Simulated assay, not measured.
Amino acid sequence: MTPQDLAALHRLAFTAERPWSAAEFSDLLTDPHVALLQRPQGFALTRTVAQESELLTLAVHPDHRRRHIADALLTEWMQTAQADHAFLEVAADNHAALALYRKHGFAETGRRTAYYRRADAPRVDAVLMTAALPRRQAVESPGIPSKTG
């Protein structure tokens, strides 16, 4: 997906909040710590630094929700991130996302009060969530001993 494709899908998926622009996606994708995970009709953008991986955004086309696309993207992120912990924030009124994240072991660790603006509606809290990621075994090359060995 191009930055324009990402922005178009993000605009469709996030109608209550300001969608990200193609320029914002383009800038993020130049960061070597940012990864783009893709499925037809959905994507996730993550950033991994210092043993922590953050879900920056996850978007699924509204016509393709409830088809396990977000679940697959979240699973891929959690299984491939080279980190010990994952974290994210989500709008408190996004009940489907909250249920998905809890299913994957995320727990609420804090809140940002009235963080998300809503057009013609009260602001909504951001829920901060964290989960432990599976431990990875160090991969050793043949003939090169490990540092512990």
Rank of each mutant, 00 (worst) to 15 (best):
L74E: 15
T75C: 06
T75S: 13
E76H: 12
W77I: 02
M78R: 15
M78D: 04
Q79P: 07
A81W: 10
D84M: 13
D84Q: 14
H85P: 00
H85A: 08
A86T: 06
A86R: 15
A86E: 07
L88H: 10
E89K: 14
E89F: 07
E89Y: 10
V90L: 06
V90M: 12
V90F: 09
V90D: 08
V90R: 14
A91D: 08
A91G: 10
A91E: 09
A92N: 10
A92V: 02
D93G: 09
D93A: 05
N94Y: 07
H95F: 08
A96C: 02
A97F: 08
L98A: 01
L100H: 13
L100K: 14
Y101C: 00
R102P: 01
R102F: 05
K103T: 11
H104C: 01
H104K: 09
E108C: 02
T109H: 07
T109F: 06
G110E: 08
G110Y: 10
G110F: 09
R112Q: 03
T113Y: 03
T113F: 03
Y116G: 00
R117Q: 11
R117Y: 02
D120C: 02
A121F: 07
P122D: 14
R123F: 01
V124G: 00
V124P: 00
A126D: 01
A126I: 07
A126K: 06
M129L: 07
M129C: 02
